[in-house]
Design a protein around this nucleic acid. Structure first.
Lengths: 221, 221
DNA sequence: GTCTATAAATAGATAGAC
DNA sequence: GTCTATCTATTTATAGAC
């Protein structure tokens, strides 16, 4: 669990070289970027709704309003597109982490992260990638963008876990990796969705209930 | 959360009618049943390994050693086969419930059930059905065998939840349905698998760790 | 880079002989 | 009921004109 300094949340993909003339970002390039953003956003909506296997490139194309062949000019495969979706969400997570007050208690930081993940999922903005699909897993592990983004987020969360354990607010008997996995797993937990289907609770109530089971456990105290 | 008396774990599919001559179970019928069992077992292995969407009927047929067309003489669709797999597992769960000592503390009963689920999953015997797939969900909700088996197990677990809350060993502030879902969710939790991939813990250790996060929570006590 | 049209591969399901 | 062979639909991905 390595702590990495992350002075800025989203380093620009092609930052201007120091001393170089600021490159004129052509209108065409801007449009291209916007189009790619729209594609990834549509893909993430579908990934959240149906998962990787049931999402089809036809659906993505239809959602964006372009031809399927055009998708492949931006992303070479379905796996690459899903990876871009994960990178996007990890970037959003990083942006959220940057908004948290630096001096708050580490345990509260962790709760805030989990809360953010569950709300994103309930809002249909959290792509759900099956852990079993080998072609997808291979593509993710081969994507430096993905691994970088994941590591940045994991390092930040990991440092909070260590701090909270040193703090004695988080159980020190649990391996930090177990805690990290347990927190990440809230992003694919079916419980919030089932509770939502029941219609008895608001999204915020659902989040509070699941947060309680996660941090306080099921036992009576 | 209705408690239902379940005097026997597995009622025979076609119990002899009272007063009727015990039907001679022909050798052929026995073989047929055994074949179907083998099909469902193979399907469950594949469902546990790859999930519903990635499992193909060709793979099932190859695993059993029969032609794909023969599968369809036993099960009219992939969804029906998966439903039969779930009924099988629910039957195994029911058998396990029947072995638990009747007088044990309800909280311990619940822990024992979760432990059984996680061990079954780590052993590759727990089919993982995606909650999103609508054709599958429809087939499950249309299957009386499935709904019956699910209700039997849920009633038993639900009665323990109520008892444990009355007992003050389980947090009384949590809606029983939330507790039930949280326990069921251990059957599709990715955390045990990830820990297993790490290679640092035995299956039993993994189960104990996840049991601890589930019942004790992440907070220090 | 976007489109239409199509290739190539795969999967669920069925036909029909035995 | 089991087999081989096939149908039909779907899906990923590409070809080639503009």
């Amino acid at each position: 669990m390595l702590q990495v300094a992350t002075p800025f949340a989203h380093p620009a993909k092609n930052p201007p070289l120091p001393g170089a003339r600021t490159p004129q970002v052509s209108f065409k390039t801007q449009m291209l970027q916007a189009r790619e953003d729209a594609i990834v956003e549509a893909a993430n909506r579908l990934l959240a709704e149906k998962g990787f296997d049931l999402m089809t490139m036809d659906q993505v194309a239809a959602n964006v309003g372009i031809a399927k062949a055009s998708l492949y000019k931006h992303f070479s495969s379905k796996e690459q597109l899903a990876a871009a979706g994960m990178v996007r969400v990890l970037g959003q997570a990083q942006d959220f982490l940057a908004t948290l007050p630096t001096r708050a208690a580490p345990l509260d930081q962790l709760k805030a992260v989990v809360r953010w993940m569950m709300l994103a999922r309930l809002a249909g903005r959290m792509p759900s990638l099956p852990s079993e699909n080998s072609t997808l897993r291979a593509a993710l592990l081969a994507s430096n963008d993905y691994l970088d983004a994941l590591m940045r987020v994991s390092d930040q969360i990991g440092s909070w876990i260590e701090a909270a354990q040193a703090n004695c607010t988080l159980s020190a008997r649990l391996p930090p990796l177990l805690v990290l996995y347990t927190l990440y797993a809230r992003a694919c937990d079916p419980v919030p969705e089932f509770l939502k289907l029941g219609g008895q609770h608001s999204d915020e109530e659902i989040v509070q209930l699941v947060l309680s089971t996660c941090f306080d456990g099921l036992n009576a105290r």
